[in-house]
Amino acid sequence: MEWLSEFGAIAAMQGFNGLSVFCVLLLMALGLAIIFGQMGVINMAHGEFLTIGAYTTYVCSSLTAHFAPSFQPYYFFFAIALSFLVAGAVGWLVEWAMISRLYKRPLDTLLATWGLSLVMQQTFRSVFGAREVSAEPPAWLMGSVNFTDAIEIPRNGLFMMGLTLLLTATIFLMLYRSRWGLQVRATVQNRLMSRAVGINTRKVDRMTFALGCGVAGVAGAAFTTIGSTGPTAGSQYIVDTFLVVVFGGAQSLFGTIASAFLIAQTQSLSEFFLSGSMAKVLTLSSVILILMLRPQGLFSIKVRK
């Protein structure tokens, strides 16, 4: 019977592994689900907003360690809030300066935001240096929880999961249960009509974009607990993130969650049998194959065009 419990432990750990990948993917994709899924803006600099959050957390961590070491256990919550604000503020500025002029040219937005991402990467490199930095996570996030002798769940993984859950729920409530969310969805479906019924679409656009960037910032803050941060940390994930949103069906928050889950499980499961790079190739190719069969993604809202 020993092999059975061992097998169970491996399965549990493997499942948890998949869940962590899921959380990482979902955290990254949530901001983009708002910006790309809801607004239809292709923000290639989304990864850099993630990096902003990560660097903000790093700065908070260093400042705390330097000036108020006793504050160390609590700084992380403060850092998350600050990451949200900083990334959101930068997003607000970017929308004002660039995106708002390009709403009618989606393909050009893609190129312009790619340019923005290059500029932001180089800015990070100039300010923080090319070497990767890492924030000091609070002590209560270190180590792992032992459920049984064989099953060990790392605490930062649990924290990520909780944060993902909280963030997803908040965004869901905001989009589908608030007046603001109603305005956002109305603007997305028919900009002209929304303006006609008195919605300030410019303001809604700006707030939505800023919120999406802020969420990316929170994701970046959370990532500091599992890895270090470099100038190009965020940009490596940009294609995966876009695929998650497209695969789930843009405009559908539930689709984004489902596709993040599917992609994460496929990835971690195939990593069990194949090498890391081949697992990635397999996952991405199957996503593209399914997209070819079902271009509108897994879940889509029927809209008349």
């Binding site: 989606p106 190739v281 997209l291 271009p295």
Partner: peptide
């Protein structure tokens, strides 16, 4: 043939570029 729109086409081609790179490196 499936009428995949312009933006989606860009993203899919980008993903194909990523796949091929990972494949060649792997």
């Amino acid at each position: 043939k499936r009428r995949v729109g312009d933006v989606y086409f860009s993203i899919v081609t980008q993903a194909i570029a990523l796949i091929l790179t990972v494949l060649i490196v792997g």
